[in-house]
Structures are given as C-alpha cells and as structure tokens.
Design a binder for these strands. Sequence first.
DNA 1: TTTTAACCGAGACGGTACGTCACGTCTTGTG
DNA 2: CACAAGACGTGACGTACCGTCTCGGTTAAAA
Lengths: 201, 201, 201, 201
Amino acid sequence: MTTSTIDELPVEAAFSCRFDERRHAILEAALELIVEVGYERMSMDALAERAHASKATIYRHWDGKAAIVAEAVQKRQCESLGNVDTGTLRGDLLSFLEEARRSMAQGDGALIAGVFQAMRTDDALATLMREQVLEGKRISCDAIVSRAVERGELAPTANGELIHEILPSMLFMRILVNNEPVDQAFCDHLVDDILLPLLQR
Amino acid sequence: MTTSTIDELPVEAAFSCRFDERRHAILEAALELIVEVGYERMSMDALAERAHASKATIYRHWDGKAAIVAEAVQKRQCESLGNVDTGTLRGDLLSFLEEARRSMAQGDGALIAGVFQAMRTDDALATLMREQVLEGKRISCDAIVSRAVERGELAPTANGELIHEILPSMLFMRILVNNEPVDQAFCDHLVDDILLPLLQR
Amino acid sequence: MTTSTIDELPVEAAFSCRFDERRHAILEAALELIVEVGYERMSMDALAERAHASKATIYRHWDGKAAIVAEAVQKRQCESLGNVDTGTLRGDLLSFLEEARRSMAQGDGALIAGVFQAMRTDDALATLMREQVLEGKRISCDAIVSRAVERGELAPTANGELIHEILPSMLFMRILVNNEPVDQAFCDHLVDDILLPLLQR
Amino acid sequence: MTTSTIDELPVEAAFSCRFDERRHAILEAALELIVEVGYERMSMDALAERAHASKATIYRHWDGKAAIVAEAVQKRQCESLGNVDTGTLRGDLLSFLEEARRSMAQGDGALIAGVFQAMRTDDALATLMREQVLEGKRISCDAIVSRAVERGELAPTANGELIHEILPSMLFMRILVNNEPVDQAFCDHLVDDILLPLLQR
DNA sequence: TTTTAACCGAGACGGTACGTCACGTCTTGTG
DNA sequence: CACAAGACGTGACGTACCGTCTCGGTTAAAA
C-alpha cells in the first residue's frame, strides 16, 4: 500500500498516527462509560471493549483508571471554555454558571464525582487536576472580573479572587454532596445574594 | 441534632451485651482503617481482622462498607458538637471553624472524603448523611446566627441560611479538592472577608 | 441442623468435607479437560467453569496448572493398578501391557504427554511424579518377576530391573514420540522379542 | 539421511544473501534460547531481540515457534552425525552413545525436550521430526548392524530393527523423564546387558 | 442442670475485576 | 522493497477483594 488510508487529510490533527487514534478512542469510551455507570463501576475490560482496544494497549498508555479519567476530563474541559463577554458582570457570571448547568445536564456530575474520587487515591492525578482543570476555571473567573473593572462595574480594588473561591465550592457542594440540580434559581441566588454583594462591597 | 438514634441510653452502654460490644469494636476499627488507608483501600477482610470479628458478623449487622462508615461517622460526629457561646458572632464562627480544624488535624479529612465517596454509590447512605450529619451542622449554624440576632450584632433580617450554604462548601472544597490545611489564616479569611460582610450587609 | 447431610455415610471418605468435595470436582474437571484439549490448551478459566469453582479456589489449593495435573494423574494412576496374577510370566506381562492399552484407548495419551511436559517446567512436580507414579509401575514390575521366580519360570538371578527399565521406555516412546497405537502386535513383540529373551537369558 | 530437503545447493549457501543471513541468525538465537530457558519460556520477543531481528521477519519465514525450533534442531542434527566404524559392534554402539553423551553435555536435553513438547502441539512438526531426525538415527543404527554382519559378529538373521527401537527409547526416557545423566555406566549397561544379548541371541 | 437456640470466629467459597505477559498481526519509517 | 522497531487485539495468567455460606465452639436463656 503506497498511501495510507489516513494521510488523505492534509491538515486536521497533523500527526494523527495510529498511536493517537487509539488514545482518542479510549478517552472517548472512558467519558461515555464514566457518565453511564460512574467511575467505580467502569471496568477496564468494559472500557477496552467499548474502545475496540485491548487492555494491554490501555495499560501501555496510562498507569490506571485514574490516569485515564484525568486525561479524559481535562480534554473535555478544554473543549468547552467559552467565557463569553455579555456586556455586564451579572451577565458574565450567569453565563459562566449556565455553562456549568449545561455540562451537568449532560451527565458530567457523575464524571466530576468520579474524578474527585480518583483524586483521593492518586496524588499525581490530584495535582494534575488542580493545576490544569481548576486553573482553567480560575483564569475564566479572573477574565470576568477584569472585564467588569474595565467597564467600571467594579472598583479596581474588588477582590476577584473571591469568585473562584466561592463559586466552584458551592457548585461542587451542590452537585456532589447535596445532589441538587444547578437550576436557574440557584444561579440567581448565587450571583445576586453572594457573589455580587461581595464584589461590590 | 437534639436526639440521636442511638443516644437513648443515658448510662453509656450500661449492660453492654456481646451484641453491642461487637458493633462498637467494628465501628472503631472502621474509623481507624478509613483514616489510615482511606475508604477505598479499607477492605472488609482487614476490617474483620482489626476488629477481631468475622466478616459474617459484620454483614449480619450492616449492609456493606458504606453503611458501616455512615454509622461510624455519625457516631464520631455526635461525640464532638460543642457549639459554644463565645459572646460574639465572630467568636462563635471562629469557634465553629476551630472545631473543624481540630477534626481535620486528627485525620478526619480522609474520613470525610471516604464518606462522600460512599455517598455517590449508596443512595440510602447519602440521604442518611444529608439528613443527620449535614442537618447537625445546619442547626449549629442557625444557633450561631440566632444568638447574634439576640445580641443585636445582626439585624433580624440577616439571612442565616447563607452560613451553612457557604461555610461547609468552602470547608469541603478546601479539604477534599484543594487538599489545603484549614489553618488560622483560612478561618480568618472565611469569617472576615466572606461570612461577616454577607451577614452584615 | 443437628445432622449433616453428608455424615450419613458411616465410612467411605470418612472426612469428606466441603473442602475435599471441591478438590475432587476440580481434579475431575482437570482430567476431562486435559484429555479433551491437551495440557497446553487447558486454561484455568475453563477449568474453573467446568468444575463450577472459582479460580481463587483453585489457586488456594494448588500452585498452578502443573500441580493440579500432577495430582489428577496420580489419583487416576492409583485407581487402576490391578497387577493380576495370570499364572504365567508371559501372561502377567501381557496383562500389564493390556492395562496400558486400555488406559491409552481412553485418551490418557494426551494426559501423559501433558504431564511430561509439565514436568519439564515444574521440578517439584517432576520429582513427585517420578517418586509416586513411576515407582508404582516399578513395584508392579517387581511383583511380576517375583511371582515368575516363585513359579520357577525364571532363575532367581534374573534381572527384574530390566523390565521397568525397558517396558516404560518403549511404551512412552511409542505413545509420545512415535504416536503409534499400543496394539496387540506391539505388545506381543515387546514381550516375546525383547522382555522374555532378556529375562530368560 | 541420503537426501535432505535443503541440501540441494551443493555449494553451501555460496551467495548468502540478506535473506539467508536472517534465517541463520534467527535459528542460532533459537538454539541458544531453547537451551538457556527451554522451549516454553522462550518468547518470540526475546528471540527477535536476540537475533536483532523483527518479529515480522520471523513470522514471514516460519509459521510459529514450533517450526523454528524444528528447523533449528534439524540443522543441529545434520552437523553431527558421525557414525564412525570402530572395528567392533560393541565399539560402534558405544561410539554411537558417546555422541549422544556429548550432545547432552552441551545442554541438548532441554532442546530435545522442547522439540518433543512442540511435537505434541504441531502435527506438521511432529511428522517432519519423525521423518527427518528419527529417520537419521535409524539409518545410523542400520549401518552399525550391517557392518557387524559383514564382520561376522552377528548372524545375518539378527534383528537390527531392535536397536533403534530400544536405544532411542531408553535414551529419551533417561533424559526426559528420569532426568538422569547419560554416563559411562549407563552406556555400558545398555550395550552389554540389553542390546548385545538381544542381537546375539 | 441440662437443653436449646442464638451468636460468634474463622475462613472457604463463587464471582468480578484487576494489571501483566506472550502470541501472532499489522504499521511506520529507515537504509 | 525488505527490514527493525514496536504498537496492536486477543486471551490466559495469577491476585485481591467482595459478599455469602458453612462450620464448630461458646454463651445465654429456657426447660
């Protein structure tokens, strides 16, 4: 065979070798499974079958279940980090929460729970997640506050740090511990009763 | 929590029959193990050995690992629920956090993480924990706010609800996700920069 | 339950507890499988399923495939070690070979091949087999020669050792290497052209 | 062995192309490995590494492990098939056994065991080995008897067949099953107590 | 006291999933 | 274009833990 069946695409995933194709299939399968059955009940055999891969291949690429899930979540996180400018601070905050709402509605609650569980077991994973996923959130929060300061909605002295301290905490508490939906009422309450008062103080 | 499901015996286990003696030994062993190795790595075989009990006995008394841990945590929670009146709102809040600090220092972080993990798997446990443990925290928070209103530190319109929304969220986030210590600086920050401003608004 | 469902048999396998029942089921399944598919293709999973046992149970009782097969073969060997007195040396020898013929016809060829293969890997097994199985054969051979000497068919100086040197060698060669049947012609040839001439020399 | 399937090239691989160079390296590596670790524990990966070859190349040239080992053993066999005329029947027999002794001392025991094991799995290999290797032994035995008849040491009616029936059987039994050395005492015993008496009867 | 029944420890059991290893195939890139 | 290098799917391996079950022995109340 003179031409590969894959090289036909001139660009798009430039070095998309078999290697990467397998990684991708496995990560996708992991995301599906973790949402369907949760982290704990996702077996490596099931993962291998779903990804049309072999367990050997999986363990060749990752150290264990935790590492796979970490990478999968990180990937998913990168895909959706819009951070739209709605023109007002309140709008930006609600938009940010809306993103979380949509994510949860898709079943990411189980996924997040799975990841946090995995983080308790695997320190390397925990560090990774903190550095990459949470840091992504932080950057978004900072951008929201910066824009508000530029608009003159907030004093330059407003403590933007507070948002990414409080917002993720309460989101996770609601999702993971209380297991209540991230609905419009909750978003409004969070923004109007907690975040804005603290920022505008 | 005014009445526990177990506290009914005023004289602490006066006629401690073999039955109760076994329950106690197993619960103690569970607490030890969950702190030492975490929920996930606590095996029932290890638990049985540590408690000098048989797995049959364990499964005779509880449905599974989750149920044991739930009861153990509940028990531990009942032991330490001071809620002292320090004379000021700020003092009460710091005292409340101090309690959490001490608990964490003893290794309860792993325990809490374990319980939350178990809650994802076992719905009955989750409901139980929400009703009993979290409700206990809520009552404490309410009491703190009530006393502040009586003292005139807070307007009667102050939203006491906010405390037990925000405080546990941020505590858990710090302990379970960020894995950072609940130190004095954090307590002060939480009280002075977040809780008090919101209550006194 | 005051009386066990098994104790009813006063003798016959006096201590036939669950323990031994499992061993027996597994050994029987092993014999079946090794004859059906050979030693190499007998998987432990298949063995577990066939014996309605779990792999854990198998590995609790034996070190590995080799050890199971060793015990199974030893057991089978013990079951059939007739060594009948036919009245003549030639008759005894042919009877001895007839036993081998029957065994082979039942598919024991594959079993023996499997065991010898396992012996190359597992030294403990090899020693065990040499001591127990081959020694059983040796005793039978000695008995045949002793009876012939008593009858006066052989001089007391006849070297009985020769039988169990030559006979098993040629049997195994024919079965394992040449893969030819142990038929009547072969038995006659072995007895009349080789064994009797050497003994009567 | 008058004609081999490979000997057709009179000039011994005169223009040893890369093709043949690879075959040779792999066969040599196979001989080394099978002697070092045995047939079972010789992995194809190890073989490829040892021969500085790729597994693809190996599987391009042979069907599997068995086929490689078959060819390697055949090659080794052809290298050493002296069959010297020592002037006496007894001398020829001992010389023949001496050859086996030397071979065994070099570690060919493991090799032979490996081949016999492979023969149980691979019928094509088994047939090949029986036809080529064992037939080689038979021809040597026949030659020894023929010379003895010519010398007048044996009657023309002596059954030469007996040698290659008994001799390889007892050699293999001793090597593979009993795992005892092929020492001088054994050779003498075999020749003086078994082979010569039967031939001279 | 003697019986009887509940309870206990010990631990074997059938399962499920784990992470590893080797086989034989297939792909990529170099000489 | 054959090759080395090595990733891949497959499938068996031996281990760990789960939750169930059966066994004797011990302790309590009932006879």
